[in-house]
Amino acid sequence: MYVLGAVAHAGVVDVPAGTRVEVVLERVGGAAADADLARLNLARPVVDGERLYVPRVGETEVPEVLGPDVAVGGSGGAGGAAPGGTSGPAGVDAVVDLNTADQTTLETLPGIGPALAGRILSWREEHGGFTSVDDLLEVSGIGEARMAELRDRVRV
């Protein structure tokens, strides 16, 4: 896996698939002092071939030179289609389909952890799917602020 951004020693680190992001960060010497760890799911297992970008506090976009398959705190792609209709397991600019995304894919979205991803899946099952992105506002835990972060990252 390729780790870059706000880390002590960016580069390729060899870890078994399923290793948690937290362990990967330890393997690269830890996060930099200005890393925005709140945007990472430290408990997420990684997949072979992905790139992990650790953003800095206040950083809102991944540098363009990194390419579309780098994920901010998520799982950048090794390519190929993935659940949820993304360009890799969850590329930064990838748009997640709310009606097909699985738990792991939903957790790559900003502000979505395991509990909230579970509530999104439950809402989808209970209501037969999303008919509009705005339906997310009906999910407990998603307010206007979080919706603003998600609006350009999701579709139905």
Score class of each variant (00 low, 15 high):
Val24Phe: 14
Leu150Asp: 03
Glu107Leu: 05
Gly128Thr: 10
Pro63Gln: 06
Asp48Asn: 12
Gly129Arg: 15
Thr108Pro: 10
Val95Lys: 09
Val62Asn: 05
Ala38Gln: 14
Ala115Lys: 15
Glu61Met: 10
Glu26Trp: 13
Ile112Met: 11
Asp93Ala: 01
Asp48Pro: 08
Thr131Glu: 08
Leu52Glu: 00
Glu59Met: 08
Ile112Asp: 00
Gly58Pro: 05
Pro45Gly: 06
Asp48Leu: 12
Gly88Asn: 05
Gly141Cys: 05
Asp135Trp: 05
Gly143Met: 11
Gly5Gln: 03
Val12Thr: 13
Ser87Asp: 09
Ser132His: 09
Val24Arg: 00
Ala31Leu: 00
Pro55Phe: 02
Ala6Trp: 00
Leu116Lys: 15
Thr100Glu: 08
Gly76Gln: 07
Gly143Glu: 08
Ala38Lys: 14
Pro114His: 12
Asp135Tyr: 07
Ala78Cys: 06
Gly79Thr: 08
Glu59Gly: 06
Met147Cys: 12
Gly118Trp: 13
Gly76Cys: 07
Ala35Pro: 00
Gly79Tyr: 12
Leu37Ser: 06
Val47Met: 14
Val15Ser: 04
Glu126Tyr: 09
Glu26Pro: 07
Arg27Leu: 15
Pro45Met: 01
Leu150Val: 02
Pro45Asn: 11
Ala148Ile: 10
Met147Ala: 15
Val47Ser: 03
Arg124Phe: 02
Leu106Tyr: 04
Ala31Asn: 07
Gly111Thr: 10
Gly29Val: 05
Leu40Cys: 12
Arg20Ser: 15
Glu144Ile: 06
Val72Gln: 11
Pro63Glu: 10
Ala32Asn: 11
Thr60Met: 14
Gly11Ala: 03
Leu42Lys: 09
Val7Thr: 06
Trp123Tyr: 09
Gly143Val: 12
Gly73Pro: 04
Thr86Met: 01
Thr19Ile: 06
Arg146Trp: 02
Thr131Lys: 12
Tyr2Pro: 03
Val133Gly: 04
Val54Asn: 02
Leu150Cys: 05
Thr60Glu: 14
Val54Pro: 02
Leu66Gln: 09
Arg146Pro: 08
Gly111Phe: 13
Asp34Leu: 10
Asp152Tyr: 13
Val23Lys: 04
Gly11Tyr: 02
Val13Thr: 00
Leu137Ile: 02
Arg20Lys: 15
Gly88Val: 02
Asp93Gln: 07
Val72Ile: 09
